[in-house]
Amino acid sequence: MLLIYCPYCQVERAETEFHCGGEAHIARPADPSKASDEDWVEFLYMRTNTKGIAAERWRHNNGCGRFFNAVRDTVSDKFLKFYKAGEPMPDLEAIAKEAGK
């Protein structure tokens, strides 16, 4: 059971309080009517499924209810960063480097 830090509650809690929401930073096109079919399919279905350092969405659904993002090494399950929704995607390469990956 993972240990997850909620950047809103500012505490670490067990995974059972959270729900993983998949890859982070996939924005819904601002004007969907202008999106091509390919763009829309990309938005709906295409995910990188990273083996290694990846940013993903989590929701503290049995806590404050907030969505936030986390950088996790999908191989080791180590979390490397937690940040609030709306904050820009951190430099994953720099984080990976710092983590010695």
Partner: peptide, 8 residues
């Protein structure tokens, strides 16, 4: 609903 509200 929360997802769209909070993140979009």
């Amino acid at each position: 609903m929360e997802d769209y509200l909070q993140t979009e």
